[in-house]
């Protein structure tokens, strides 16, 4: 596995009398996809709101270890951006030629990219403008931003939709655009909050396979929220089970199956035994 990229240390959060999260500990390594599995309403989204810096935890820390060794496309985005907000790193260490910056990002926005369950595309912007939103918000010249976004359309399987409006796209396509937008946020860690759960079963299955295929080429470290056991087992390197009230990490399961996987994996005994373990835990 790759180097450590994100540590979530003893996060607790309550709203008034309601204790939502208790002592959450999560680690994420470079290139990993780690799922956080739990029933609806357990506090998964609250956890992501804390990680993305939108809300401040009552206690605990979120630490980002920035390696600056993102994929070629991403680093070209960075250089075009002229805006690397990881300059504020507390300490610098050199490890194996890569410089690692450690940043305490607790309660700070703009360090991780965040994708919500809804695609949240702006209806009045064309697809390409929607995808380029993070670049435009970063005050990149529009022409440049659209060019960088446009180069990714083929890879994300949405070629030809550039100048359509989101309302003209199907649910699956819209979600791909939202994913491209998340990717163009150009952060080393992505938080995906049930990105496929609003899709119908067939579209969801094809999106999961598409996502696996696409992740081969993109070195993105991902934290993935889901309430779907099959999805978690199929996509993840590791799964954290979030449960209880207040929610805490009940267990961590390592899915020991080489990647890239295909949907056949979902029919094996191994898959089912994982599923049984998780079901018993929930």
């Amino acid at each position: 596995m790759g180097k450590r990229i994100l540590t979530v240390d003893n996060i607790s959060k309550s709203y008034g009398d309601k204790h939502v999260l208790e002592n959450i500990n999560i680690t994420l390594n470079q290139g990993e996809l780690v799922s956080i599995l739990g029933v609806s309403g357990v506090g998964k989204t609250t956890l992501f709101n804390v990680l993305s810096g939108l809300i401040m935890p009552d206690s605990g820390n979120v630490t980002l270890y920035s390696h600056n060794s993102a994929s070629g496309i991403q680093s070209s985005v960075v250089s075009n951006n002229g805006n690397t907000d990881s300059d504020t790193g507390d300490e610098k260490e050199v490890a194996g030629g890569d410089s690692t910056q450690t940043t305490d990002i607790t309660g700070k926005t703009g360090y991780l990219s965040y994708m919500l369950q809804k695609d949240l595309l702006l209806p009045h912007k064309t697809v390409i403008e929607n995808a380029a939103l993070p670049l435009l918000l970063n005050r990149m010249p529009k022409k440049k931003a659209l060019k960088i976004a446009g180069e990714q359309f083929e890879h994300f399987g949405i070629e030809g939709t550039q100048y359509q409006y989101p309302a003209e796209l199907s649910g699956g396509m819209r979600q791909r655009v939202a994913l491209l937008r998340t990717y163009l946020c150009d952060k080393e860690v992505a938080l995906l909050d049930e990105p496929f759960s609003a899709l119908d079963t067939i579209t969801r299955a094809s999106m999961q396979q598409w996502y696996i295929d696409m992740m081969k080429d993109i070195k993105l470290s991902t934290l993935f929220i889901t309430h779907d056991m099959d999805e978690a087992i199929l996509l993840s390197d590791r799964i954290y089970i979030l449960k209880g009230s207040p929610a805490s990490i009940a267990d961590e399961i390592i899915i020991d199956e080489p990647k890239p996987r295909n949907s056949e994996f979902g029919l094996t005994d191994k898959f089912l035994s994982y599923k049984k373990i998780i079901r018993d835990m929930l």
């Binding site: 926005t109 703009g110 990219s113 965040y114 949240l120 702006l122 993070p134 918000l137």
Partner: peptide, 18 residues
């Protein structure tokens, strides 16, 4: 406007005027 849209834009460090 969808609250989640504002949440998403805040996570992208958008300013109030943006």
């Amino acid at each position: 406007v969808d609250e989640d849209m504002i949440k998403l834009m805040k996570s992208m460090k958008a300013t109030k005027s943006q």
